[in-house]
Design a protein around this nucleic acid. Structure first.
Lengths: 234, 234
DNA sequence: TATTCCCATATTGCATCCAATCCTGGGGCG
DNA sequence: CGCCCCAGGATTGGATGCAATATGGGAATA
């Protein structure tokens, strides 16, 4: 999970795992879609054995659901799941930010500011998504807690499987940009409590926006993460 | 992860996965120990294919580390890892508690009280560990956030791979018991902020106790989780 | 005696193969 | 006309076999 570039070249199951995971997270593979072993094996030019190992890893990540004798299906993300993952974002990221702020160097702050500027200059909605991710991860990186950061990253990507497009459309770019700038200022001034407060409100707002968006027009969401009508995913 | 009883019977890889995971978490399989595919296959009376799938799942959980062409070894947990997992406990469990308290019914409170009483009556150190786990999980269960609770459970078990014996020995039973009782009272009275504060202090104390114990006598810890001297685990 | 090279062995990685289970469609029966 | 059943294909689950890589120990050499 940490060193994808090297790992991708390492073993076949790893390569398949990384590729499939990315395709699930970016929505290329929608929730509910069955993953046929033979088909994947053919696509990657390997046999079914490494495919099965990759699928098991995806299952452990909760990105794929196994049904007995019926193979693997891309797991669906319900609205409740997405809201809960944002809840988890609050838990993990607020703590990480609290740990990070006292350790931020000038270099760290400059890096964060650069991401912020790029965000302000970006026009494409996919750039917003990427830069939003970069901004948040850059905030927490100074904490130097590899496990916590890995958890944050996994949960962030998973949360945004469902929420990316909707939230971006619902809230636009300006409000998060303002909030990011405020957050950055609080970090720079070392005001931990204020920064954590802002971050919580920032994520909580996207929870509300997501709930509101889905309630208004839930049709779209099925396309993104498959949104299981009944059971909530994995 | 949720329904182990049914899952254990379901598929062979699942059965192996659950069993191996339990053996790693309870320390039967120490960190650094290589897991030979052939040997595991023989032990469980199956071929290497399902063994490999189970190992891949354990790898995704971070309980096992793969080395290219050298197979899987039980991942080691350094002191820094253990402290970080306690940090993650603070993040996840404080949030879960905050969500749970407003939703606690009289029945929930009665259940928590029962665990607390059992803790007070227990004499064995392994009972303390189990009841400590039960107490904490019972606190968060009313939040009714399945993903959050699953994360908490996984992280809790992983954290205690390293810390269980040491912390129990270092802090004894009385102090955590008192803290649990205080925490319970705050929950019953609906004092969210106080309860969360206490929980954070409770876990932070075990961080300090763990660090102190290891610094005093680090010899023992190698036996529990294998404690990699150099690189920190997965 | 220390060191390096090399080969035998152990082990993994992956492909292939067979058995078991699931799904689909068509014919038989009520 | 509708329902049930079952046969054939599709798909998964697991075992086996073979090639590739790592490991360990002994012989040859400096």
């Amino acid at each position: 999970m940490e060193q994808e570039v090297e790992d991708a070249a390492r073993s076949t199951p790893r390569r398949l795992y990384v590729d499939l995971r990315d395709r699930i997270l970016d929505g290329s593979l929608a929730g509910g879609q069955p993953l046929r072993q033979e088909e994947l094996a053919a696509r990657y030019g390997v046999s079914r054995s490494p495919v099965r190992e990759a699928l098991r890893q995806l299952e452990a990540d909760g990105l794929v659901t196994y049904q007995a004798n019926r193979g693997a299906v891309v797991s669906s993300v319900s609205l409740a799941d997405a809201l809960e993952m944002l809840e988890i974002r609050i838990a993990l990221e607020c703590r990480a930010l609290r740990l990070a702020i006292p350790l931020m160097t000038d270099q760290d702050l400059a890096g964060i500011a650069a991401v912020l500027d790029a965000y302000g200059a970006a026009h494409d909605v996919t750039d917003w998504g990427r830069l939003n991710r970069d901004f948040h991860l850059a905030l927490y990186a100074p904490a130097d807690r590899p496990r916590l950061l890995a958890l944050i990253q996994d949960n962030f990507d998973n949360a945004h499987r469902f929420a990316r497009v909707q939230v971006s459309n619902a809230t636009g770019r300006d409000r998060p940009h303002r909030e990011h700038q405020d957050l950055f200022r609080a970090c720079r001034e070392g005001d931990i409590d204020a920064a954590v407060q802002m971050l919580e409100a920032h994520i909580a707002y996207s929870q509300k926006a997501l709930a509101a968006t889905v309630r208004r027009g839930p049709a779209e969401r099925r396309g993104v993460a498959g949104a299981g009508a009944g059971g909530h995913g994995n």
